[in-house]
Amino acid sequence: MQRRVIFDNKLLPYLLLAPQVAVTLVFFIWPAAQAIWQSVHIQDAFGLRSEFVWFENFEVILRDPNYIETLKTTAIFSVSVTVLSLGVALLLAVLADSKIKGARAYKTLLIWPYALAPAVAAVLWMFIFNPEIGSLGQLLNRLGLDWDYRLNGTQAMIMVILAASWKQVAYNFIFFLAGLQAIPRSVMEAASIDGAGPVRRFWTITFPLLSPTTFFLLVVDMVYAFFETFGTIHALTHGGPGKSTETLIFRVYQDGVVNNDLGASSAQSVILMVIVIALTAVQFRFVERKVHYA
């Protein structure tokens, strides 16, 4: 077979690429460059005085014990959200994929939460968990559990993890379901005939064949937990009580938008960018080796 260049015109490919390149330049490279510039300066809010300080902003941030705490909080939060949303979605997808009555209705219901904005979802959770007006919050207090996420850091963390995961479960569910439906029936039936039970079938056939999907979702969920859960945390706890639910992205917002400290905020964005690039690279280098692409 001969591979031929489809485009005769030398300019056309570049022209077709241009919109995508322009979008990347304007919405990623340009702001990222600005963040790097800001991160080595100390500036007043109005941008009237600017001082070049080398890496002082980074130094201050990395020496701040509160920042190290925030790093730990983010690790706990992101890993929990990723594991929880992947696990629950996989379980639900396997159940919804089996031959049961009303499978279509279940599927539709499970996909719904994805259509909600994070802030709206967070408000729904607040109405459930608020100790005074929330249905579950009131119930927990009546059971003598002393539920108050405004003062109990662990409870607050559990709540934001649940709220953030719940939303991502829907997304993961769609992909897992699609992945499951792509697994050839004949393989499963052959295994059944050979005497493999449902659990063994799952671990030896379904799970390996789903691994490309799982890997893709792992990367997406990690990025989601790092960047897109801002709305959830902002609406539910504002990072409190104390700093117990403050994640890296929330602190970037807090320092940059509320506290007008652009230098510190930019230094944190740069750190955050490095962390996520590193995580993704690690995932691609080590986890992908174990992935079985059919």
Partner: peptide, 8 residues
């Protein structure tokens, strides 16, 4: 934040 820690 520090007040919340005192309450905890």
């Amino acid at each position: 934040e520090e007040l919340e820690k005192a309450f905890q």
